[in-house]
């Protein structure tokens, strides 16, 4: 026994500082946040009392949370994830079979990922300006120039329930290149022999894709959905820099920030954050479990 410990002990010691740091900063903090959400802390001085689920119950009758934030984030997630998946997939499909200048195209599709959400929002808030007539500009002006003036939109300033969907445009601009590279890697991971075998059997290219390649892309698609969904739920800066305090694009992440650090409603902020954590955990935990298990089987 001692000899075995001597064999792996030093390794454990080497990573112990990291493990402790993460234990405190991830699990300790998450736990403490849940504890705060069960207190009545409001204002500058922390309260350490225990009020049960009162903050959560209050959230369920909080108009901002139930009628704006939750539907908003649902709409945003739906449009952003579906849109990025579709665009990323099509781009990967176009590139898959090899085209001249592939590297150039790939670089162009991916570079927005290197740009911060703050800068992205600053650029796009001007592109999605809702001026009309003489003050028309941005995308609306491009559309009008292309004879598509009918598509003129007020974007995120629109009065519609779907105003927040406009933010999926800069978010998708930022991340669909990422989805493309995931799909591209997946498509190229399919052994050529498999495709060749199908072709020999007389399958047409679309059929080869449908019967050979598509089933193998399922895990890739799952990765993409999980990653995009968790980004969507926790994104803060993109909305914040786009049009802060516009309730049409308010999300739980923003409500948490403003109510906690502007209003001093710490307990309520902690409750919103805990719900966000639950939302993210329901997609992430199975994903990590699955990934590590698949890897072990290999």
């Amino acid at each position: 026994m001692m000899r075995r410990i001597r064999a792996w002990g030093p390794g454990l010691v080497l990573i112990l500082p990291s493990l402790i740091a993460l234990a405190v900063f991830v699990y300790g903090f998450l736990g403490w946040n849940i504890r705060v959400s069960l207190s009545s802390w409001r204002g500058l001085a922390p309260a350490h009392d225990f009020v049960g689920l009162r903050n959560y119950i209050a959230l369920f009758s909080d108009q901002r949370f139930t009628e704006f934030d939750v539907p908003n984030i649902a709409i945003f997630t739906l449009v952003f994830v579906a849109g990025s998946l579709a665009i990323g997939f099509v781009m990967a499909l176009l590139l898959d079979r090899g085209v001249t200048g592939e590297n150039a195209f790939r670089s162009v599709y991916l570079f927005p990922m290197a740009i911060s959400f703050i800068a992205t929002a600053i650029i796009w808030r001007w592109l999605m300006d809702n001026g009309s007539g003489e003050s028309e500009t941005g995308i609306n002006k491009l559309l009008a120039g292309a004879g598509l003036g009918a598509l003129h939109s007020d974007w995120f300033k629109s009065g519609s329930r779907w105003a927040i969907a406009a933010i999926a445009l800069p978010a998708g601009w930022s991340l669909s290149g990422y989805v493309m590279s995931l799909f591209l890697a997946g498509m190229r991971g399919v052994p050529e022999e498999l495709r060749e075998a199908a072709r020999v059997d007389g399958a047409s290219e679309p059929r080869v894709f449908w019967h050979v390649v598509r089933p193998m892309l399922l895990p890739v698609m799952m990765s993409a959905v999980v990653i995009l969904t968790h980004i969507s739920l926790k994104t803060f800066d993109l909305f914040y820099a786009m049009d802060q305090k516009n309730i049409k694009i308010d999300t739980p992440a923003l409500y948490m920030w403003f109510t906690t650090f502007d209003g001093g409603f710490y307990a309520r902020g902690a409750a919103i954050a805990t719900l966000l954590l639950l939302g993210v955990a329901t997609v992430i935990v199975p994903y990590i479990w699955y990934s590590v298990r698949v890897e072990r089987r290999r």
Partner: peptide
Amino acid sequence: PYQAVLIP
């Protein structure tokens, strides 16, 4: 989601 560690 980093919101869930901000207060601590």
